[in-house]
């Protein structure tokens, strides 16, 4: 039971949603799938007098739009797993969704967009969106605003979402690329310790490392991927300058294992 007074809003348009977010600024939260925010409200870690449910906005769809796939903010991990378009055009998103713990009972509620907006470093989502070169489409008082995923994640639990704004869509380019993914976790039910998504596009091999640092980190492996273990490990360790520590793992541990996680993602890419 949430112990404080709460008013539920289910707006039918983006404009109406922003109007509510502006009217109750400071006392309002956005409700995505609810899997993070509701337990936090239940424990009184987050208090708000108003909650804006995005379920009325038709944002639970995956569509092909020319050169990109458009993923609505309310698309759940389960929707990603069930989508033929995602399987064909954005297999890395499918891999990511399949690796989310908590069972289908969780994947049928939790959204990738919600995980992005939460900005927890220990999440699978931010690094995958950065690896794919996704664009985050926000709606706010000034209308639509588009932010590249690489600029969206500002700090731990801080994103580019501003006052009165919320995430509407994520646009993921349909690139003909090879991808590899690896996620290190403590046990079946644990959140990620370090993730690595490796994308080979033409001649370049880029790794995006998640959960090791406060925000996702990109590494160009093109020159060192064939020159052996030491070069990759050194490159990654030196690059994790702001390692992330939480209950799951110490930052120094994350920095130390990140190179190995990247190498496994490269191996995954090679094995196809």
């Amino acid at each position: 039971m949430i112990r404080t007074s709460l008013r539920y809003h289910r707006p039918a348009t983006p404009e109406e949603s922003t109007a509510i977010l502006v009217e109750y600024a400071g006392d309002v939260v956005v409700l995505g799938g609810g899997t993070m925010i509701l337990p936090m409200m239940h424990r009184a870690e987050v208090e708000a007098g108003h909650i804006v449910d995005l379920r009325g906005l038709g944002l639970a769809t995956v569509t092909e739009e020319g050169r990109y796939v458009r993923i609505g903010a309310m698309v759940t991990y389960g929707d990603l797993l069930d989508s033929d378009v995602v399987a064909r055009e954005a297999p890395l998103l499918r891999r990511m969704a399949g690796a989310i713990t908590g069972g289908n009972q969780l994947r049928n509620l939790a959204t990738a967009g919600g995980a992005a907006c939460y900005g927890n470093p220990s999440s699978d989502v931010p690094a995958v969106l950065v690896a794919l070169g996704a664009t985050m489409c926000l709606h706010g008082p000034a209308g639509e605003r588009r932010v590249p995923a690489a600029e969206f994640f500002v700090d731990a639990f801080r994103t580019a979402v501003g006052g009165g704004e919320f995430l509407m869509w994520m646009e993921v380019p349909r690139l003909v690329v090879e991808v590899g993914y690896h996620k290190l976790k403590l046990c079946e039910g644990s959140g990620p310790i370090v993730t690595a998504a490796v994308v080979r596009d033409g001649g370049r091999t880029i790794a995006t490392v998640g959960a090791a640092s406060v925000t996702p980190l990109r590494f160009d492996l093109t020159s060192c991927v064939d020159s052996g273990v030491d070069t990759v490990d050194e490159l990654i360790r030196d690059g994790v300058v702001n390692p992330w520590t939480d209950v799951l793992a110490d930052g120094r541990y994350r920095r130390d294992v990140a190179g190995a996680v990247v190498r496994r993602a490269v191996a995954d890419l090679r094995e196809g």
């Binding site: 289910r10 899997t35 337990p39 389960g78 289908n104 009972q105 939790a110």
Partner: peptide, 12 residues
Amino acid sequence: KIIKSCLILAAS
């Protein structure tokens, strides 16, 4: 769809 009902408001 199966869900964990502690993660959703009744209003939703």
